Amino acid sequence: MSVRLPHEKGFHVSWDQLHRDARALAWRLDGHGPDDGSWRAVVAITRGGMAPAMIVARELDIRMVDTISVKSYHHQTQGEPRIIKHPDMEVVGDGTGVLIVDDLVDTGRTLEVVRSHMPRAHVATVYAKPQGRDQVDTYITEVSQDTWIFFPWDMALQYVEPYRGHD
């Protein structure tokens, strides 16, 4: 039995698909904030959470947007997560009324670190894997733990030779 390479069990996400899924996330969150259904801020987990956070903020008309930078991956290898940039803690406080948005929860270790700084925030991801799903309050699509998600910002369009012939 051979080991699968990450691209062999991959889930390729286009910009269009990401946009549709992030809008679906916004629709799911609409009206569920603690302030008469509204949210007061969005905090994107960089870098993957920036595109979905921008779409969620636009759809829900949230003008206060900040980031938290957590480094846990080196290419496709996950290490110990550490915060390298905090949001404005005077604005986000304990997280009440704040949406934390990321593209994906994998093991949940990154979100554990983020939640420790904003324990009352609502965590939303576009995609979720089973191992980290308990760290997320709202998500759109679940994928298996052994699936590698290829996001559009990691991909490039290029010519592919046909299977047969060279025309």
Rank of each mutant, 00 (worst) to 15 (best):
S2F: 05
V3R: 15
R4I: 02
L5V: 07
P6G: 12
E8D: 04
F11P: 04
F11I: 04
H12F: 00
V13A: 01
V13K: 02
S14K: 08
D16P: 04
Q17D: 05
Q17E: 13
Q17T: 03
H19Y: 11
R20N: 13
A22M: 03
A24K: 13
A24L: 09
L25M: 11
L25W: 00
A26V: 06
L29H: 07
L29Q: 03
D36F: 08
D36S: 14
D36M: 11
G37M: 03
G37T: 02
V42I: 10
A44C: 12
A44P: 03
I45G: 05
G48L: 00
A51N: 10
P52K: 04
P52L: 06
I55P: 11
I55G: 12
R58Q: 14
E59S: 13
E59D: 14
L60F: 12
L60K: 12
D61F: 09
T67P: 09
I68Q: 02
V70D: 09
S72F: 04
G79R: 12
E80S: 14
P81C: 05
P81L: 02
R82Y: 01
I83D: 00
K85H: 13
H86Y: 11
P87I: 05
P87V: 06
P87E: 01
P87G: 14
E90V: 11
E90I: 13
V91I: 14
V92C: 07
G93V: 03
T96N: 09
L99S: 02
L99P: 10
L99N: 09
I100Q: 07
V101G: 01
D103Q: 10
D103R: 06
V105W: 00
D106M: 02
G108Q: 00
R109P: 00
T110N: 12
L111F: 06
E112R: 15
V113L: 14
V113F: 07
M118V: 11
A121T: 06
V123E: 01
A124H: 01
A124N: 01
A124P: 00
V126Q: 10
V126T: 07
Y127S: 04
Y127M: 07
Q131M: 07
G132C: 03
D134E: 13
D134N: 15
D137P: 07
Y139E: 00
T141F: 01
E142F: 09
E142L: 09
E142C: 14
S144D: 11
Q145T: 11
D146R: 13
F150D: 08
P152A: 05
D154H: 14
M155K: 09
Q158S: 13
V160Q: 12
P162S: 14
Y163D: 11
G165Y: 04
H166A: 13
D167E: 14
